[in-house]
Design a protein around this nucleic acid. Structure first.
Lengths: 164, 164
DNA sequence: ATGCGATATTTTAAACATAAAATGTTTCTT
DNA sequence: AAGAAACATTTTATGTTTAAAATATCGCAT
């Protein structure tokens, strides 16, 4: 066999294997960072506002859409299952922070909105929440921020294109 | 007031506010990417190997340390609570994939290892798992990979330094 | 009109996660 | 040696998450 061919294919193999390990390492570091930040946010929401992250997230979605969202909209935007939204919404409703009103023309759907109390409470929490995130991620330069956003955008697009 | 001073502080304020929004956007995108990939891995592990991600993660820790790990080691390396490890280990033991043996000199601790069946099964899964991660993250160039790793390292260090 | 498939939501069962209490073991101090 | 403190693990209570089943409604093609 031509030794240059053998050399080429060997290089190819080692490059592939090297890339594999790279990707694994990147994934593990990505996961660690995200989990660290998420845990931090979760702890502070609990200790300072006595609320869980999922409840806060649901309220954040509603705060962006003052006209309200259906349960299905919430499920889609929060990227969690419908049953999950159902449980979280039940609790927030019990606390008086959101309301579920029937939709005039559609007896299947509910329109979920923040109550006045919910709006007030969310405004307080959102300010603190933003600060915590800046504490975690605010040290990056503008260039690093842009680069990171661009890479994550590509990754997101690539992963979304994979069929389960 | 000196107008140049006013201008400076205004710029400062607006820069801060701009950074805030940047950090939030970056956090949301980071979270979305991580969740997408994690969900993909979870689905494939379930559909192709009928195993959950936490169980796979526990086995992965053991595969790296053939001499075995204690429950406490596992808890620390997986960054989850001891009670959680206890439950996952109970199930894996029931499936015959790991074994919990008493440690000779210490009757408090257990030495957890992969069984022969566990080793064989993990080897099959690990190959597929690596491939899935490369599918998700393998498109980055070496430079992008290095840059991303470096940024995440800084972020990890910064977040770890924050006291809860 | 009627019935069938799609839609919107809730309920249920199983797995996972945590914090805190309980259990048993080891080590240190006196 | 006895007691206290620290350690390793499990148990318990509570809550989150998902997939799948159940419930109810809607819209459309016959």
């Amino acid at each position: 066999m031509d030794p240059s061919i053998a050399q080429l294919s060997l290089d190819h193999e080692s490059r592939i294997e090297h890339d594999d390990h790279q990707a694994i390492r990147l994934w593990l570091r990505l996961l660690t960072c995200t989990n660290l930040i998420e845990r931090h946010l979760r702890n502070r929401l609990r200790s300072e506002f006595d609320i869980t992250l999922p409840r806060f997230d649901l309220m954040a979605q509603l705060a962006r859409e003052p006209q309200g969202l259906t349960m299905g909209d919430l499920s889609q935007r929060m990227m969690v299952s419908g049953g999950n939204v159902s449980g979280i919404a039940t609790q927030l409703e019990k606390e008086g922070l959101i309301s579920r009103e029937p939709v005039p023309g559609n007896r299947r759907a509910f329109c979920v909105t923040l109550t006045a109390a919910g709006n007030k409470r969310f405004a307080e929490m959102a300010t603190a929440h933003e600060g915590w995130i800046v504490d975690c991620l605010g040290e990056l330069s503008d260039a690093e921020y842009e680069h990171m956003m661009a890479m994550l955008k590509d990754i997101k697009a690539g992963v979304s294109a994979i069929k389960d």
